[in-house]
Design a protein around this nucleic acid. Structure first.
Lengths: 188, 188
DNA sequence: GTCTATACTCAGATAGAC
DNA sequence: GTCTATCTGAGTATAGAC
């Protein structure tokens, strides 16, 4: 539960925990990001940490949620391609976040995992926003009008996710460049 | 360790375990596919099961390995598009396999996980085969010659992986059709 | 080689005291 | 809000029976 105004300290502590967890994933890997490890990093007992998030799974989902919120503030409201590429270039600086995202996207296959609801919501929201942008660019003649906008969105999303899968195996691949090449194919 | 000829019984049992594990993942989900659960299904103790595979992680990797071997026997040696689409259509019949693949692809981000070596090898082999096929189709004029074959391979692979990520959230999406649309864009 | 029984260690989670 | 103590269940190492 996110606390409201009255408990400012709790809100700050929550954010500190999210940052510490992400930092540990980036430095030592998802596997060693146990509740105990994260609790140690912020000077809490495991139970004290779980007080804020209820479960480890929720904690991890909340990291992604916070990250999406930060992205939507920072990324300029430009075209689909520019926005996606900007996010990808940012992700390349934060390997822990990419590993976490990839993991949770896979764990979302479990209907009982909180990541499932998160990714279903997120997909609906992201696709709705992308739909408007894609259709507008088709009308403006920057994307081929005969292509199904739903396909463009599904494929663009899947491509970006799949490239992250490949990138955690081999970080020398240039995810942003590969996505740009995809968009080049969509041009009239 | 894979046993050689002399111990036919062990080989058969190994295969039975792989099948039982995949069946449990498909029916009850990856999460409940514990060593104990799988051991029960084949009438073994957990330690008896581990005798064959060494670890749970290895067991799961071996399922994917066996599946790749089966695919390379069954899939006709046609063009890149036809082969990929055939595998995808087959995967749509085996949700447990898709869930397992997606999970392990994510867990391969961990350098200590046996899935990492598996996916690195697999990627190298699959890409090498795809490279020849793509270049041949470019020479034959079925794929645009000006496109970088390495990009086609990386993007095709990433797209297929990403679509599986989306499919475990929403199995109504038509992975094969989306891949076919991608290949349509590559045509001259 | 095949397999069981036992036991160890670690994980995440919970109850209740402070 | 945070702790300690405890519970449950996971994976697996070991010893040894057959």
């Amino acid at each position: 539960m996110v606390k409201r105004g009255a408990y400012a300290k709790g809100v700050v502590k929550r954010e500190g925990i999210l940052e510490a967890a992400l930092e540990i994933i980036g430095r030592r890997g998802y596997r060693s990001a146990s509740v105990r490890e994260i609790a140690d990093a912020v000077g809490l007992s495991p139970a004290g940490l779980l007080h804020y998030f209820g479960s480890k799974e929720q904690l991890f989902v909340d990291i992604l949620r916070a990250r999406d919120a930060a992205d939507s503030r920072q990324v300029p409201d430009a075209g689909v391609e520019e926005s996606l590429v900007a996010i990808i270039r940012h992700n390349e600086q934060v390997p822990g976040l990419v590993e976490l995202y990839t993991r949770l996207a896979a764990e979302a296959g479990d209907p009982a995992h909180p990541a499932r609801a998160f990714f279903l919501d997120r997909t609906a929201i992201v696709h709705a926003a992308a739909r408007e942008a894609v259709v507008a660019e088709q009308r403006a003649g920057r994307i081929r009008a005969e292509l199904d906008p739903e396909w463009i969105i599904r494929a663009g999303h899947a491509l970006a996710d799949g490239l992250q899968n490949a990138w955690i195996l081999d970080p020398t691949i240039d995810m942003a460049a590969d996505v740009e090449q995809f968009f080049a194919l969509l041009k009239p």
